[in-house]
Design a protein around this nucleic acid. Structure first.
Lengths: 156, 156
DNA sequence: GTGCGACCTGAAGTCAGCTTTAGGTCAAGG
DNA sequence: CCTTGACCTAAAGCTGACTTCAGGTCGCAC
């Protein structure tokens, strides 16, 4: 049995690099689950480390906790996730990363031709205002493409 | 003369897509300058639209306002920025975007081989923990590479 | 000259994602 | 049994980038 093979919050913190405060926070937010000792202290299964690695990678590229939770929710509930489970998850995230990369490339190239050349015209600029739809949106309307607005991020 | 050719905050908001509150905020933060009417209302020069386009593009890819201000500070003070001025600015930002793109590509490929295959081992994972230096950093130490920590962002 | 929409200011509020603080409790070694 | 470091909770605090609010002013058309 690995019933005895549980980790304290300090151990998880040390191995994952997340401070205990973040681990508690993630638990409150429903990204992690723990068991408790009789006295109420947290005990973590080893599999939490894998989840944390996923969280770390996702946060690094700027994915918000809501989205991370959705991703993790796709993992099986009772049993330990299999290779296939992680693989499925990975495929969906790969698409997301590809999108982000494309957006950055487009922006970089746009900057070269647009800001770089000094022609930055608000009405014409493809980068800045791809379809000239800006005025139609309400006051305070956001220009950011939905994809880019998904999350405020550390990553970037 | 284009002395009479000034824009009200409402006009700038409409043309730039930034709400007036954001324009006032950017002014307080030193990203924008304005002249005032006798009665104290803001009047913007047309060139502010170009600055705002730059701000928009930068924010979109996740650059923080501090960095944006630094970028804009490189523009000439008295005269209207020339093509060469914008071009110089663009070159420095291009490098930044290239870095970000590379980081995302690395992460995507890392996810493919690391999370995707189910092997996610904290001690070994190159993506997660490139040099195993994690435990040596203080409590609460951040793993994000400095480049990725530059700014919380909308972009990405 | 009057009406009224656009504008002004300072201060407070918001949101994400955590961290910090205060005031205790647990668990394991000696 | 006692000590002591690790752990617990709730609540408040923080940063960045703005938005919202309250209460008042401007300026232009009629």
């Amino acid at each position: 049995m690995d019933t005895k093979d549980l980790l304290t919050i300090g151990e998880v913190a040390h191995r994952s690099g997340f401070p205990p405060s973040a681990l508690r926070y993630y638990e409150r937010e429903g990204l992690l689950r723990t068991t408790r000792t009789a006295g109420g202290q947290r005990r973590y299964e080893r599999s939490v480390l894998r989840r944390l690695a996923f969280i770390r990678a996702a946060r690094t590229v700027g994915v918000g906790l809501d989205e991370v939770r959705h991703g993790l929710d796709q993992l099986p509930d009772g049993r330990t996730p299999t290779k296939a489970d992680w693989s499925r998850l990975s495929r969906s995230w790969r698409g997301r990363l590809d999108e982000q990369i494309q957006a950055l490339v487009a922006l970089r190239d746009g900057l070269d031709s647009c800001i770089g050349c000094g022609c930055l015209s608000l009405q014409r600029c493809r980068l800045y205002n791809p379809g000239d739809r800006v005025a139609e949106l309400g006051p305070g309307a956001r220009l950011l493409p939905p994809m880019l607005r998904r999350t405020p991020a550390e990553g970037v």
